[in-house]
Design a binder for these strands. Sequence first.
RNA 1: UCCUCGGUAGCUCAAUGGUAGAGCAUGCGGCUGUUAACCGCAGGGUUGUAGGUUCGAGUCCUACCCGGGGAGCCA
Length: 506
Amino acid sequence: MTHAAAGFRHVSVQELTAYEGQEVTLKGWLYNKRGSKHLQFLMVRDGTGLVQCVVAADSVDVDAWRIAEEATQESALIVTGKIVADERQAGGVELVVSTLKLVGESVEYPITPKEHGIDFLMSHRHLWLRSRLPWAILRIRNRLIVAIHTFFQDRGFLQMDAPILTGNAVEGTSSLFELDYFDEKAYLTQSGQLYGEAMAMAFGRIYTFGPTFRAEKSKTRRHLTEFWMIEPEMAFFDLDMTLDLAEDLLVYMIGDVLAHCKEELAMLERDLAPLERVRKPFPRISYTEAVELLCSNETVDMLSVRIQALEEENAALAEELAANRKRYGQAKKSERRRLDAREIVIHRRTGEIAEALQNLPAWKASARSFKWGSDFGGSDETVLTWHFDRPIMVHRYPAAVKAFYMKRDPDDVRLAMALDVLAPEGYGEIIGGGERATDLVFLEEQIAAHQLPKEAFEWYLDLRRFGSVPHAGFGLGLERMLTWIAGIDHVRETIPFPRLMGRIAP
RNA sequence: UCCUCGGUAGCUCAAUGGUAGAGCAUGCGGCUGUUAACCGCAGGGUUGUAGGUUCGAGUCCUACCCGGGGAGCCA
């Protein structure tokens, strides 16, 4: 729906091409400005996009010209003018200004259109949200949410909200945020799954979509203390049906984003090829096969090749840097700027390489010495996915590393009917789940073996006492999924206000 | 909790133990089509904190604080 159709009194940047030749009014903020004595180019953003507004001194009144000259970054503006085609512009049009009003001034906006460090940006997250990359990422997040609801609703799933405050700790309290609930202990939820199982017995197929909290003291690019999880749960589903569903869901989500977020992905400079390769079928390998692959000579060779390539790149960059510095003395000012800019790029890349070269030998050792029966570490998952060109589905894990409610493999009782989906390009686990145990006595034994308080699980055990059926489900981490799709290197940029260990504001 | 890297101007970064600099941002001046515009000038510093070594410390040592990355744990 256009702004006009929605009853708004001004148009959005997004729909400007439809107004070519007409006079329109835009309301937004000054993103950047370039100018000369009689001409100012205002880059104006309104939340839907960016457009260049051209102000000529001789075609606006004195007040408007002064505003154009004096407006600083992020000043709020109302701009009226004619939309004209211009090939040089990203959107194909620009606005030739006839009147200009200042709504709110902006003094010394801290985020300049240059380089900033992550600490500074995170401390100014409330303003950083206005920049291009957060804009692109959070627009894709919105599209993913729409796609997820559409996918499940089209397949007859009922969306349900699981409680956020819970009384029982499902898997140990070390990873739970504890709080006082009228003199009782309560926790912020770390999964809606048990409640989802109850709802699946009532509605057949359901999914939750809500916040999840983990108090793990993790400071890595894959962790948030507050993140959003989608957890489908299906009555009368076995492991294979669940693998099919997870595969269909991922293919649908990627396809939907590719269809609707071309501009955003381009802004992120995302290589689309790995996303376009996400088609059925995904490789399905058992945990045991994954362990064999991890310990294989093939893995050692692959990592050696990677290490060597990085060392060569590092040497080449060091050489270039030395050559540039030698040239710097005689260089003209404009060339010095180029050299400065190049030095920043080299600096950043050598930092990445140093980090990788520090990690890779340890990752290689970890993979080589991996023993059947342990759970995969972050590096093991990354190394595994480097062998494939699309997401991989790993199934049938050792029961010991999975939760108490997992169904055992009837062909091998050491195994749980669990599934993990690992994203390609080293993005790691995005889905975890499996088939749930149906047998009351087995579950009671597991609760005892895990030293969990049985009273707290009586309601859950009722689901087995009254018409227990095969059922299964999984959890999809929205931020990890989005990190992969956007091709960025940290989950913190995929949620408007990330909650991380050591950072609770803004 | 452990390992590792870092903390210098508002921001991003330089600076053999020897006079703390550059780009951007800001202010002033110039330029009629700029694309992170460009050109000139100017202001801007308790080098994270506290000690120590030294004729002399941004640089070396010790402790602490803060941040990045990783391990464990996990979506």
